[in-house]
Design a binder for these strands. Sequence first.
DNA 1: GCATCGGATTTTTTT
DNA 2: AATCCGATGC
Length: 739
Amino acid sequence: MRPVNFLDGLNPQQQRAVTAGLGPVLVLAGPGSGKTRVLTQRVAYLIGAMGVRPYQILAVTFTNKAAREMEGRVIGLLGESARGVTLGTFHAICARILRREAEHLPLDSNFVIFDDDDQHSLVRRAISELNLDEKIYRPQAIHGSISNAKNELLLPDEYPVQTYRDEVVKRVYVRYQQMLLANNAVDFDDLLLYTAKLLEENQVVREKYARRYEHVLVDEFQDTNQAQYSLLKHLASFHNNIFAVGDADQSIYRWRGADYRNVLRFEQDYPATQVVLLEQNYRSTQRILDIAMAVIDRNPHRKRKHLFTDRGEGVKTFLHQAYDDRAEAAFVVDTIATLIGRKQAQPGDFAAMYRTNAQSRLLEEAFLHAGLPYKLVGAQRFYGRREVKDVLAYLRLVHNPNDEFSLGRTINTPARGIGDKTLQVLRTQAQKLNLSPGGLLLRLPREAETHREAFTARALSALVGFGDKLSSWSAQAGELSPLHLLDRILSDTDYHSYIDDGTEEGHDRWENVMELRRLAAEYQERSLNEFLEDVALVSDQDTLEASANVPTLLTLHAAKGLEFPIVFIIGLNDGTLPHSRSFEDPEAMQEERRLLYVGITRAKDRLYLVNAQNRSTYGYGEPADPSRFLDDIPAELIEESSPDRPAYRSQPASSNRTWSGSSGATRWQSSSQPRPQDSAPIIKQQFPPGSHVEHSTWGPGMVLNSRLMDNDEIVDIFFESVGLKRVAASLAKLKIREK
DNA sequence: GCATCGGATTTTTTT
DNA sequence: AATCCGATGC
């Protein structure tokens, strides 16, 4: 092992953290304080200076990408001999443990991890099986309750019942869990739940891992939930060397059970904890830090931190109020183009952040309109696309024929004459024979005669046809690489002609399939199992390649842990940020504030805070208030950019423009064309508040409110028949009813 | 069994 | 605006 100075370039606090002795260590790390660096150096220090074997180190990161980076850096410092650290997200690490320990579980080691959609449809099926009304018991909400229970390590029979709803949730939970097991499947929460329970209840297994992992390190500790916290405790229970890094102010996953109070609990549970505070910031200018502190200091019950930097004052933060959300997006794109045009920045320097995924659409349109490239993190994620899910479902089905959901997804995609009815019969038949539907399907080709009675001739031949294909794939799955299996499936199903229907969308879809194919190609040497697992556990950030020099669009949540020279935070309106769903709940409001804090502290040099005077929620635009958080920012830190007079409308795309040679970018800076509503309205109000109207389907009603917008009249009417409705006068056939 | 249409409903954040 | 669901017709 080559000699390395593990403390190179570290400040005293960082050094203390890296070289902390045995026992529990808690590093409270402000944003940009070099915590990733500390974590990496700590691992290197343990191996290189303390002689710990890599195999005996466990490091939990928030994303797979962070894990890969850490491994790369440690190996960069110490060379190949440093390989072998157990590195990954909680979910990935748990999946590995569970596969190894499957004998102690009600699962086969080749269990599948159900994604969001699978989980959702499973819950829906459980609800419908229990004859409950989906309208009243929303699958999403029920699933949320189940998920919370799992994060608190509550099994179905331990689910506390206080209300009738709890009773319902419990019944669904029981059924849901049965169904998962029947499919040899787990959901995301199960990975944590099963592992935590296993370590808790099985002393032999617990000691095996606890002895092995001499050192346990965790990043983003403030975002651990109960299950994760308990996991850590068990894993560190033998050596007690637990090294946790976190920042309570950056806790933004409360809604999925994360509890920043785990930071406080840590000090209680481990009284001997050495605490290290990292306050010096190496990322942002002082003015940006001052804004961040002004925002976060309003949260009660927190340890005040004083963030400082030697990067200098920097420029003031820009506050821009756009006319509406379209103009907001246009402002972002225009500003980016201008700065690039002036050679003050490169395209890859920019990020635009927002509260909800839906907000990305207008931004995308603005970029598209300008003909400029961008990259989007998350949203309709790659793995969420229909075509990608189809192909993965085929692979999953081959891997695990008991997976009913993959069967359901693939059996008639592309259409091969197997509808709901036939599938239903297949299910009942399978149940009679004590088989899974997939299991029966595999036998069907050989045993067709036996099942003549159950199916119609047409259905049977369709099923036999598919069963044939499936068993031939299964037979070859062992020999073929994931890539070749995928190719076989694509050609056997003629998937290309099914998905690529000649439209542009079809073409894009096929491109996505090809992208998946490229990913599979990286698994030549590895098993189908590994491919499927990695795919199931990728996070949004994992898919973010650093290479492309283009602006990044992402949610504030996805921005955690990242940094950009120039950051736009858009949608700074009450109702959006803070989100209206949080208004009622003070804890949730504090989290909204932390979310903004995370966003602000991503910026290195320049920060733009943007909001809109009007914002469209469902269909129509509505006036919106500026975010209350803006009130907390001292005026001297802000430079208000000119109010949004020109109606930003990016020029039509000048075809295939890219960021390279961006000198021309300023050309398409907004040429202002006043919007209709800037000049005199073209239409007149016809239905003033108080007027009585008649609607063709809803009958009589009274106008409560009416305003002119986008060349239309938007009217809120209270109907005797259906109550309050909002209609556009141009669409609804409204008549004034004389009194 | 499947495609199409219209209406209702939707939006918080994610491994 | 976009998706999802159920009803309808072929």
